[in-house]
Design a protein around this nucleic acid. Sequence first.
DNA 1: CGCCCTTTTGAGGCATTTCAAACATTGTGG
DNA 2: CCACAATGTTTGAAATGCCTCAAAAGGGCG
Lengths: 250, 250
Amino acid sequence: MPANIIDFPKSSGDCELCPSARICIAHGYSGTTEPSQALRCQTPLKRNQHIFRQGDHLEYLYVLRSGSAKSYFDSSDGLEQIVGFHYPGDLLGFDGVADGAYRTSVMTLETAALCRIPFKLEDEGESPRSTRLWADVMRSAAHQIDAEHNHALLLGQKSAAARFASFLLDLSARFGARGCSRSEFNLSMPRQDIANYLSLAVETVSRQFGELQAAGVIEVDRRHVKILSLDALLNIAADGAVARPRATSG
Amino acid sequence: MPANIIDFPKSSGDCELCPSARICIAHGYSGTTEPSQALRCQTPLKRNQHIFRQGDHLEYLYVLRSGSAKSYFDSSDGLEQIVGFHYPGDLLGFDGVADGAYRTSVMTLETAALCRIPFKLEDEGESPRSTRLWADVMRSAAHQIDAEHNHALLLGQKSAAARFASFLLDLSARFGARGCSRSEFNLSMPRQDIANYLSLAVETVSRQFGELQAAGVIEVDRRHVKILSLDALLNIAADGAVARPRATSG
DNA sequence: CGCCCTTTTGAGGCATTTCAAACATTGTGG
DNA sequence: CCACAATGTTTGAAATGCCTCAAAAGGGCG
C-alpha cells in the first residue's frame, strides 16, 4: 500500500505540482501580480490550531492547500455543531461575508498549509479582473449550500447506519477527486468529531464501525479505513439495512 | 386585529412603498437602465406553483416580492427535504450557481409576486456597476449558509419541542423584520411542511401545537398563531426540556 | 511506566415514530 | 347549494432506534 496514494501529498508552493489543483479554487491565481488577487501561502499550522474563530473580523478567505480541518460553531444556547470537514482545495470562511465577521470557527485536524485571499465587498474600486475570482468564490459558496442541504437531509431523515455510510462515501469521493484512493484512506478526525458532525452519540459511531467491519463492508484499524464493498455502502446509505452475513450478497 | 399588521401588504410595483424594502436584496436596482441589472416583476404565481424546479437551467435569480414559498429537493434515494421557507425580500435560486442548474425546487405557498435577476457568471464583459449587486448576492448567500448551519444544529441536537419553538421564533423574527407583528401571524404552510422542515412526524408537530397552547405559551386556530409568551418560547428553544447533546468537540 | 484521552462494549430507558382511526376542512361537480 | 371526495389535522396506544449510563480496554506521550 503506497503511502502517497492513501495520504495527501504535501503541497509544494507550486500549484502546477499540486494534485488538488483541478478542484482548487485558488488554482490559476497565484501568479497574479494584482494586489486584489494576491494569494499568499502562510506558514503551516500544526494540529488543533484555529485558522480563524467565530466572531473574528473577516479579512481573508482561505484555501486549504494541504492537511485537513473542521468548521464548527457554537450556538447561543451553548451547543456546538461541526458543519463540515475540509480537504485540500476547499474554500474556507465564506460565511463571514454575511456581516463581515466569521460565523464559524475552523480548526486544523492535522498540520495544514493555507492560501489567503484578501476579501472586501466594500471595495467599490474593485478591479474588473477580479470578477473571475468572485465568480469562483460564488460557485464554491453555492456548492457549500448544496452540501449543507444534503447534510440536513442526512441529519433529519437517515438512520444512524445510513448517516455513517453516507459519511464514508462522501470522504471516499472527496479523496478520489483529489487523486487519492477511493477505497483506502486515513480519517483525520477522532470519533467524537464524526459523532458530532453526524449528530450521533460517540458510542453509536463506534458501533457503526464495528458492525460494518463485521458485515465485511469495511476494514478498520483505528483511523485507517478500507472500503471492501462500495455497493454495500451505497445500499446502506440509501437507508437499506446492513446486509447480514447469513444471507447471500445481493 | 388589523389585517395589515398580521398579513403582508401586497407589494406594489414601487419599491419605495414596499415594507420589505429595507431587507430586500432587489431594493435600489429597479430603476436601473443597465440590462445586466434589470429587475422585472413577473405576473404573480398562484399557490402551489413552481418558481423553478430542481435540474432547471439557471437563467435568473429571483427575489420574492410578496407571498411566501418553500424550497426543497429530492435526493437520489427518493427522500424529500424542505430546506427553507421564504418571505418577501428573500433571494431565491442561488444554489443553481454551483453548476448552472438549480439544485432545489421552489414552490409558492400562496399567491406570490417575483422579481427576476438575469444571472450569468460567464459574462466576462460584466459591467463593473453590477459589482454592487454581486456583493449583495454574496451577502445573501452567506446569510443562507448561516441559516443552514442553524438548521443543522436544530435537526441534530434539539428536541422536538425545541425545534418547534425555534421555528416559531424564526418566523416571528422574520415577520417582525418585515414590518409585521412579531406576536401574531398566519402560517402559510401546512403541518406536513413544518414537519418535513423540522424532520418530525406530522403527529409530533400537531402535538407540539397542542402542548404549547395548553401551556399558555401560544394560541392556535388552524394556521393562525398568537405568541403569548416570547420568553417561554425562548426558554423552550434553548432546550429547556430534553435531549442533551453529548458529542461536542473542541 | 503511568497518566490521560480515545475507543469499545453492554444493558436499560425514553423520546419520537409508527400505526390506526376519527375528525375537520377545502375543493368540486352535480 | 349540497353531497362527496380529497386533503389536512388531531388524538391515542404500541413499537423501536438511539441515547444514556457504566465500565473497561487500548494507545499515545510525558
